[in-house]
């Protein structure tokens, strides 16, 4: 179903509760009463069209208006991606970590297996943090300054100072895949770890991992298909300044 501006915001969540994440990451608090999407967006200084395109593409994977996304301010997209990082690092990862730690009782007989899984995930968290910190501290500020420079029609002092010799290609060169390990962890848990005593705990860990995987792949799609091509276009423009 196509999500439109005159729908009630509360109905949107009933339609697809996964969109709660989008609403939060775009910076809209709950408590909608009977207000429409358009009203809620305006109240929170969110561009309604941006909200609609993002929620439609998260709701329906076939719906991906790449060209429309290019028209929006880079900063909106950056803020959205930043909040996604925050949500993943501060909530999702610790939740999974706790659930893995919860398995220690069940895997007591085989401490080795527990250690294996725990270490595997700890290593993954380290990689994920490095990856996201690079984006938060370097790539996103670069994109925002690039955007400001284009708007002002001249390179801002901060751009000259911090990013004069940076470009998105540099980022792409040391950009590693952060989804593969999640895929592996899933298969190790489903196929190769000896069956646990408490299936409920184990399943809820798996649910979280599946969710994380989906979240990361949606996130990567926005970065790879929208942010990076958009930055490349912007870099071409700034050369002409």
């Amino acid at each position: 179903m196509l999500i439109t501006a005159d729908m009630k915001m509360a109905d949107l969540i009933h339609l697809d509760f996964q969109l709660l994440a989008v609403i939060q990451r775009i910076g809209i608090p709950l408590g909608f009463r009977e207000k429409t999407i358009d009203e809620v967006c305006k109240e929170n200084n969110v561009n309604t069209d941006f909200f609609l395109q993002i929620s439609n593409s998260f709701h329906d994977k076939d719906f991906f208006p790449k060209e429309r996304f290019f028209e929006f301010k880079a900063e909106w997209l950056v803020n959205f991606l930043r909040r996604t990082h925050q949500c993943i690092l501060e909530h999702k990862i610790p939740e999974i970590e706790l659930k893995i730690e919860g398995l220690v009782e069940d895997l007591k007989a085989t401490t080795r297996n527990y250690e294996l899984i725990k270490n595997f995930f700890t290593e993954y968290i380290r990689e994920l943090k490095i990856h996201m910190e690079l984006e938060d501290n370097k790539v996103f500020p670069y994109v925002v300054e690039l955007d400001k420079s284009l708007e002002a029609n001249k390179k801002t002092p901060k751009f000259e100072e911090s990013f004069s010799d940076y470009n998105i290609q540099k980022y792409l060169e040391d950009h590693n895949d952060i989804e593969e390990k999640v895929f592996d962890l899933k298969n190790i848990l489903i196929k190769y770890l000896p069956p646990p005593m408490d299936n409920c705990k184990y399943n809820s860990l798996l649910f979280e991992i599946f969710r994380l995987e989906k979240d990361l792949s949606d996130h990567a799609k926005l970065e790879d298909k929208v942010l990076i091509p958009k930055v490349k276009l912007m870099e071409r423009e700034i050369k002409n300044l």
Binding site: I117, E180, K181, I188
Partner: peptide, 12 residues
């Protein structure tokens, strides 16, 4: 195996 990374293969 359905495992892609070296650390995943090590665990296996």
């Amino acid at each position: 195996l359905g495992i892609k990374t070296v650390s995943g293969l090590t665990v296996y």
